[in-house]
Design a protein around this nucleic acid. Sequence first.
RNA 1: GGGCGAUUAGCUCAGUUGGUUAGAGCGCAUGCUUGACAUGCAUGAGGUCACUGGUUCGAGUCCAGUAUCGCCCACCA
Length: 907
Amino acid sequence: MTEPTGTLAKAYAPAEFEHEIYERWVAADVFAPDGAGSRADWSKPSFTIIQPPPNVTGSLHLGHAQRTTVEDLMIRHARMTGRPTLFLPGLDHASIAAQFVLDKILAGEGESRASLGRERYLERMRGFVEDTRTVILSQQRRVGGSCDWGRLRFTMDEVSSKAVREAFVRLYRKDLAYRAEALVNWCPGCRTSVSDLEVIPTPETGMIWRIRYHLVDEVTGNPEAASLTVATTRPETLLGDTAVAVHPDDRRYAALIGRRVRIPFVDRDVPVISDPVVDPAFGTGAVKITPAHDHDDHETGKRHNLAMPTVLDDAAHIASTGTRYDGMERYTARSAILEDLAARGDLEGEQAHEMVIGRCQRSSDAVEPRLKTQWFVRTAPLAAAALEATRSGRTTVLPERFEKVWEHWMTTIRDWNVSRQLWWGHRIPAWYCADGHATVSAEVAGPDACEACGAPAAKLTRDPDIFDTWFSSGLWPFSTLGWPDATADMARFYPGAVMETGYDIIFFWVARMMMLGIEMMGDAPFHTVYLSGLIRDPYGQKMSKTKGNVVDPLGIIDEHGADALRFGLVHGATPGNDQKFGTAKVENARNFANKLWNATRFVLGARPVSIPADAPRRAPDPARLGPAERWVRSRAAATVSAVDRVMADYAFGEVTRLLYDAIWSEYCDWGIELAKVRLADGSLEDADREATWWTLVETLDTYLRLLHPLMPFITERLWEALPHAADDPELLIVAAWPAARERDEAAETEVGTLVELVRAVRNARADARLEPAAWLPLDVFVEPGLAASLESLRPAVERLARAKPLHWHDTREALHAAASGLAVIAGAAEAIVSTGAANPAAVQADRLRLERELAAAEHLWEAALARLADEAFTSKAPPAIVEGARARGAELAGQVARLRERLGRGT
RNA sequence: GGGCGAUUAGCUCAGUUGGUUAGAGCGCAUGCUUGACAUGCAUGAGGUCACUGGUUCGAGUCCAGUAUCGCCCACCA
């Protein structure tokens, strides 16, 4: 349904062409750098965008749409400059998030992880992922992402799996990965360990209890009546206590250090130790030590060589204590223990307590510290290398302030627990023999024998755990290019150029990519980290499914078009700053698109009959250009360089602002309005009208190119309808980015004066409440230098100011002698609107307006005079500034004088 | 307990290395069926740039402090 050049539907209806345009790009094979329709110049450096692969857990939200827009606009811009570009799309298997979602679905069907078993569960997961994947990919297309679909990757595909195995083996061989028993964050709901980042500290009001531990008679070994009172928020863990700690300088307890106390119920006698970690002012100054279930206590336990009995199982039920509490859920056990303590008189008291509970990011369960043997990545050397990359400037973080956060996190980083007791993910390629030796292998089939004792493969068992999902995400910039194989893509597209993501995953993802990228590839994976702000709802709340305030980008696209959504998401946004998102922005962007659509319709319809409909685009004849044409071209030149400048600074919000103003306030409001006059002027020759029209076409062509990265669909559609130059490609998406051009200062001054004059006349007429449509005589004085060009714009002044007849005057005196009416003082011009028959109301309004203008001008003039009188200013400020101030002062002086004169006042 | 950000028009936000009169969108007021566009046109009202002090000829912009809101990091039971 391709429409012929030169025709456009009457109304802007994005739904009618966006899909078709996208299909055309796909058919032309322009997304891939080496696609059939690509015009990439391989002598230029390649440009790769690293996109966070969306989770396969559901559908995309506005945040994704924003990411895709920002990434896509950078790619489109780079593509138009001729660089080979790679925008590689992908999906992340998101192991814990995906399992969380699937578990919920299964629960609704009366099934569970346990009831299905590992194989059937994974089968089910693959089906689920197949569905979500289709939804997600189509959403990205609707937004207009010009991704190279042929290179689509999934973090669970075979290429990625191979990279994961290889990376892990390399880390292991360099002792950067190790297996150890350590205290990990255990989520009883998800039944897996999670990383430090996935534990969300949540402030809550809990209770703190004071419990008496009786001292043990050192001779008889029997408990005494005397006791020591500990304060705790976790009474149930006393079953795992192996000491009580006090501060070494705490005189209250000095005599007790070295004594033993009896732990209730388990009847274990444990030492009273001294350790500076204890704050004597907190609680009772005595702390029960549970090394297997508390991070602090674990450290204390290591310092004092304490036993570390585990008393909670995977479900956070009490286990292996030999007490009646075994099998009880942790909070049930807590109540039971408190009750029993009270019964024996050992519960001294309780009080409310503000505290911070670590909760699972996914399930919100209170995370339980537990001792587990798991795999860890040694982060210190990796982090040091990552820091070196940012400190040396090889990788830049935008906005800059995030480098501080980055520094802090990288310097305090702890080893990364990568084992997860989940099923959906990359299985850890480690095998164990009966003696517990670990053998790590990148082979799918596993090792032939135990590395340590030679036990045969048949006797080895594979680690049941999988990797933290971010382990494979961290390999993304190169696993997607075929690593560890030396592929052509690897050579062409690594390292990437820009990594774009929200600042909320800087540690989860960016940090891991940097560490693993440098380690595996020897070079940081990208030179720029561009951190977007988060999209919030109109009330500033983070969008989340549970709050129900998630906005579906497809709904907005259906209503207003993808271009409006994209423009609205970028307009007025700055990197790293969150934005509240309401539909007003999209509606404004949609109106802008509509404006552009109609402007193009006008241009197409205004083609002089002397130009054939199928004439190729050509530059306007310089000899035939009037001030208006020169002005339009100069403004476009100004916009090109301004856009180039802000694009280089990644200031995309500024790009939208510049183009919005240039297209709407300049091109449409004045460029087209001025052109209308000339195109309708029968007194001109064909060549003059042709030059005007070609100017409109040429400038519109430039603006469509500049706007294309932001609004790809409408610009492609409109560009298609315009006449093209011989060397233009078929599609705008691969057309050349506009080259910088010379400004025309004279034309800008000339038309600037016209604009000022017309505005001032309109203002005066509106203030005097004159009939807007009336044609009124206008007498104008302009400064001699501008007279000739203003004369050539006479028809424009007449039409835009509704001025007829229009007379020019060489001097102010002549002007005042010739006419009387509304006074108009506009920079280099001065004018009088004749109101005809006496109109007292108009005269009165005119006078009030002039009074207002005079007051304002006087105020400014005085300020300017004061400034110029200041010796400090004139001697210290740069000459250009002083000169500017002088000129301004003179201008104001003139304005004040003229206004006073009009009002009949002396100076 | 550290660190960061925000505070500019009624609302949502821009404001590039300090330099004439601080901008936009929405909203508001007034008037327009102008042969591209009422998703529009014209005109206008609306701001002590949170506060205090400092640096400077000159500060929304730089420095110090204060207040309010928000975020990140942090093992006080």
